[in-house]
Design a protein around this nucleic acid. Structure first.
Length: 746
DNA sequence: CGCGAGGATATTTTT
DNA sequence: TATCCTCGCG
C-alpha cells in the first residue's frame, strides 16, 4: 500500500484518495483535518494526477498557511515546492498584481488596512459635508464591508435601500469611498477578493488560465467563507470541478465578519455529486472533555449531524469554579496554574476569555505572581505608529498615487507643514486633477501656497531622491536611507525616552524583516513583495509554542490551537453568551455556543470553566448568572468548586499567598504598588520578554550599557514589565523598562 | 501645532 | 472603569 496512506484512519484515507469531483470533508475538532489535507496533496502529486503547481490550498490565516506549507514540504520534499499554499487574500493580491491594468489599477496598488480605511471614510464623510456623528467611520466600514461581502456594488446597494434617507447617504459614502480607493490606486481587504471575482467574471481568458492552472483546489476552514470567497472558489473550480473543502459547521464563529455558514451547510446542494466524508475521531482531547463539549453543542439546531468520539482516556473531570469576583477568578486561575506547574508547565496552559477587556486582570495577576505569560491579540506590530510611518514612505515610493501615504508622512518628522498648507495643497491637487505627489513635484503649482512652498518642494525633492534610489538598492538600504535622510531616526534618538527607545527597537525589527526581501540591489519587485507581506502577513509575534509561558487570549484567537490545559474564564450570562447575543436572538446564541465549543475542544487533558458572582462591566458592577452553557452540561459531568473570598485584599495578600504556595516564587524585586495606568502602550508590548525576575533591588548599584553606573531608586510593576528608576552617576535619573535596559548588577 | 481636559463610548476581528 | 477622540487653549 501507498506510504502516504500509512497512519491514516479509514475516513482520512477516503478523504485522501477521493481526488476527483467535489468533496466535503466534515472534520470535527482535533480530527486530523490538516493531516488529511496535506496527505491528499501529497497523494495527488505521488499518483501524478497533476503537477504540483496545479494544486491550490487556501487557508484563512498565515499561520495556517505556514503550517500547511511545512507539512506539505515534509511529505513531498522538493516536489511540493510549487504547490500554491496561500491565504485567500494573498492569493488574490498575487493574481491582481498581474492583472491590475484590466481593472484600472497599476500593479503597484496599495493595500489599505483598517486604519487607512477609517482615514479614508473620515475624508469622504467630511467631503460630502455629512455629520460624522451620524455616520461614524466604524459603522460605515462595517456596512460597506457587509455590502462587499454580499457582492453589492454602490449602485446595487443604493437600489436595495431605496426610500431610506440615511441609507442613501451611506451609499453615497460607499460610492465616494470606492472612488477614493481607485484614485489612490489602493484596495482594501475586501476589495482584494471582490476585484478578483470581478476580474474573473469580465475576463474569460484570465479565468480560464487560472482554472487550468488550479486543477485541484482545497479550502480549509470552509465554514468561515463568505459569499465572495464562495464565488471565487466556485469560479476557479468550475472547469475541473476538483474542489475539496474542509470544515466544521460547529466551529463557525465569524458570522459577524460576513462568514456564511450556509456555504458549508448547503455545499451538497450546490454541488449535487459531492462526496461527503466525516472525520469524527478526535485525537486531541480526553473523553471527559469531549463529552462536555458535545453536551453543549448538541443544543444547536440546524447543524450537520455528527458526534465526535475518541479512543483517548477518560482524563480528569472537567471542573467548574465559581468565584466571588472577577479578581478572585483571575487570582484563583493563576494560582491554580502555579500550584500545578509540575504537571502542567506554564507553556501548556491557556486562559481563554470572551472579550479582550478580561485580559487585563489576568495579565496583572501574572505580573504580580511573576508567572511568565504571553498575550495574543491587541496591537499588531505593523499598526504601530513608527512602523506605519515608515511603511507610508515606502508606499509613497512604490505607489505614487497613494495620497493617503503622502498625507501621513508629509509632516513626519516635523517639517513645519501645517493644516492650512495641507488644505491648500489638496485643493490644488483636486483642481488640477493630480496626485499629491505630482503637485509636490511641480514647483510652479506651489506658488500660491506661500511660505511653506519651499518646505514642500524640499520634501518633494527628498521623495524623488528616494524613488530614484529605490531602483538600485535593496529594501533594507532604502529603509535605512529614509531613516537617515528624513531625520526620523535622529529625532527618536534625540528624544531618548523609554518610549522612543522602544520605537527604535521596533524599527530595527522592521529593518531585519526588510533584509529578508532580497539582497539583489536591482531586484525591482522586492519592494512590492515587502509591502504586500507587510500588509497581509502581519503576524510577527505569532505564538511560539516552545516558550514556557501561559497564553492569554480570546476564544476567537484560540481557534486552530490546542493546549494540554485550558481555562475558560467568565462563564456568565451577559458576558458569554454576551449581552448583545442574548438580545438578538437564537442565531446569535448559537454562534456563541459554537464559540464555547471551540474553546472547550482546544483542551487536550484538562479543562476548567470559571465564573464570577460579580463583575465590573463598562464601569458598572453586575451580578451575572452562571452561563447557560455551563447549565447545559449535566451536573454529573462537572466537578463544581466554589471558591469564595479567596483574595479579599488582593494587592497585599498576593505576596503572602505566593509565599505560602512556594517561597521561591516570591518576586525578587519587590513591587511597590500597582501603577497600571503609568504604562507606555508603545513599544514591543508583548513581543518583549518581560523580565521574569530582576537580579537587583532598590539600592543596588547597576550598570547600563550606555548610561554607565548608577543606583536603583525605585522599581515599579508595569503592565508588561518592570519599570526601573535609576540615578546614574553621569546622566542623572532615568526611567527605564527592565527588559530593554538590560541592567547588570555590579 | 501640540497638549490636556472632558465627553462619548464600550463584543468577537483570520486578512 | 478605561480608553479613545475631539475640541479648545497656550
Amino acid at each position: 500500500m501507498n506510504k502516504i496512506l500509512e497512519g491514516l484512519n479509514g475516513p482520512q484515507k477516503e478523504a485522501v484518495v477521493t481526488t476527483e469531483g467535489p468533496v466535503l470533508i466534515l472534520a470535527g475538532a482535533g480530527s486530523g483535518k490538516t493531516k488529511a489535507l496535506t496527505h491528499r496533496i501529497a497523494y495527488i502529486i505521488d499518483q501524478k494526477l497533476a503537477m504540483p503547481w496545479n494544486i491550490l490550498a487556501i487557508t484563512f490565516t498565515n499561520k495556517a498557511a505556514g503550517e500547511m506549507r511545512d507539512r506539505v514540504d515534509v511529505l513531498t520534499g522538493e516536489n511540493g515546492q510549487d504547490v500554491w499554499v496561500s491565504t485567500f487574500h494573498s492569493m488574490c493580491a498575487k493574481i491582481l498584481r498581474r492583472n491590475a491594468e484590466k481593472l484600472g489599477f497599476t500593479s503597484s496598488f496599495s493595500i489599505y488596512d483598517t486604519d487607512e480605511q477609517k482615514t479614508l471614510i473620515k475624508q469622504v464623510v467630511a467631503s460630502l459635508e455629512l455629520d460624522k456623528k451620524n455616520y461614524p467611520e466604524k459603522s460605515m466600514l462595517s456596512v460597506i464591508s457587509s455590502a462587499k461581502n454580499a457582492m453589492q456594488t454602490p449602485d446595487l446597494f443604493e437600489k436595495e435601500n431605496m426610500g431610506d434617507y440615511r441609507m442613501q447617504k451611506v451609499s453615497d459614502i460607499y460610492r465616494a469611498y470606492q472612488e477614493q480607493l481607485q484614485k489612490n490606486n489602493a484596495m482594501d481587504f475586501d476589495d482584494l477578493l471582490l476585484k478578483t471575482v470581478e476580474l474573473f467574471e469580465y475576463n474569460e481568458d484570465v479565468l480560464s488560465y487560472y482554472q487550468d492552472r488550479f486543477r485541484y483546489i482545497h479550502v480549509d476552514e470552509y465554514q468561515d467563507t463568505n459569499a465572495v470567497q464562495f464565488r471565487l472558489v466556485s469560479l476557479l473550480a468550475k472547469k475541473h470541478r476538483n474542489l475539496c473543502v474542509v470544515g466544521d459547521d460547529d466551529q463557525s464563529i465569524y458570522k459577524f465578519r460576513g462568514a456564511d455558514i450556509r456555504n458549508i451547510l448547503d455545499f451538497e446542494k450546490t454541488f449535487p455529486d459531492t462526496v461527503v466524508i466525516k472525520l469524527e475521531q478526535n485525537y486531541r482531547s480526553t473523553k471527559n472533555i469531549l463529552s462536555v463539549a458535545n453536551e453543549v453543542i448538541r443544543n444547536n439546531q440546524g447543524r450537520k449531524e455528527k458526534t465526535l468520539w475518541t479512543k483517548n482516556g477518560e482524563g480528569p473531570q472537567v471542573e467548574f469554579y465559581e468565584y466571588e469576583s472577577a479578581y478572585d477568578e483571575a487570582d484563583g486561575v493563576i494560582r491554580d496554574i502555579i500550584q500545578n506547574r509540575e504537571k502542567f508547565p506554564y507553556g501548556s496552559c491557556a486562559v481563554l476569555y470572551r472579550t479582550n477587556a478580561q485580559s487585563r486582570i489576568f495579565e496583572e495577576k501574572c505580573v504580580a505572581y511573576n508567572v511568565p505569560y504571553r498575550m495574543v491579540g491587541g496591537v499588531n506590530f505593523y499598526q504601530r505608529k513608527e512602523i506605519k510611518d515608515l511603511i507610508s514612505y515606502l508606499k509613497t515610493i512604490e505607489n505614487g498615487r497613494d495620497d493617503l501615504a503622502v498625507l501621513r508622512i508629509i509632516n513626519v518628522p516635523r517639517r513645519g507643514i501645517g493644516n492650512v498648507t495641507l488644505a491648500r495643497l489638496e485643493s490644488i491637487a483636486a483642481e488640477a486633477g493630480m496626485t499629491l505627489y505630482d503637485v509636490i513635484r511641480e514647483e510652479e503649482l506651489l506658488s500660491g501656497i506661500g511660505r511653506a512652498a519651499g518646505k514642500i518642494a524640499d520634501f518633494g525633492r527628498q521623495l524623488a531622491g528616494f524613488r530614484e534610489a529605490a531602483a538600485g538598492i535593496t529594501v533594507k538600504d532604502l529603509l535605512e536611507k529614509v531613516l537617515d535622510e528624513t531625520g526620523y531616526k535622529a529625532e527618536l534618538i534625540a528624544e531618548d525616552t523609554v518610549e522612543s527607545k522602544a520605537r527604535l527597537e521596533n524599527i530595527e525589527e522592521l529593518i531585519s524583516k526588510a533584509a529578508e526581501f532580497g539582497d539583489e540591489p536591482d531586484d525591482q519587485e522586492a519592494l512590492s513583495r515587502f509591502l504586500e507581506e507587510v500588509a497581509l502577513v502581519a503576524d510577527v509575534d505569532s505564538l511560539n509554542s516552545d516558550e514556557d509561558r501561559v497564553v492569554l487570549m480570546t476564544l476567537h484567537a484560540a481557534k486552530g490551537l490546542e493546549f494540554p490545559k485550558v481555562y475558560m474564564a467568565g462563564m456568565e450570562e451577559g458576558l458569554f453568551p454576551g449581552r448583545m447575543a442574548a438580545f438578538s436572538g437564537e442565531d446569535e446564541i448559537e454562534e456563541e455556543r459554537r464559540l464555547c465549543y471551540v474553546g472547550m475542544t482546544r483542551a487536550k487533558e484538562f479543562l476548567a470553566l470559571t465564573a464570577a458572582h460579580s463583575r465590573m462591566i463598562n464601569g458598572e458592577t453586575t451580578f451575572p448568572k452562571t452561563s447557560r452553557f455551563v447549565n447545559e452540561i449535566p451536573s454529573n459531568m462537572l466537578r463544581k468548586k466554589i471558591r469564595t473570598a479567596a483574595a479579599k485584599s488582593m494587592k497585599q495578600a498576593a505576596y503572602k499567598d505566593v509565599d505560602s504556595i512556594n517561597g521561591s516564587y516570591r518576586p525578587k524585586a519587590r513591587i511597590l504598588g500597582t501603577n497600571a495606568s503609568a504604562n507606555y502602550r508603545v513599544g514591543k508590548d508583548f513581543t518583549t520578554e518581560r523580565a521574569d525576575s530582576l537580579d537587583y533591588a532598590v539600592g543596588d548599584r547597576v550598570r547600563h550599557i550606555k548610561f554607565g553606573e548608577g543606583t536603583v531608586e525605585k522599581i515599579e510593576e508595569g503592565k508588561k514589565d518592570f519599570e526601573v528608576t535609576v540615578r546614574f552617576d553621569r546622566v542623572g535619573v532615568k526611567n527605564l523598562f527592565a527588559s530593554f535596559a538590560k541592567l547588570k548588577k555590579v
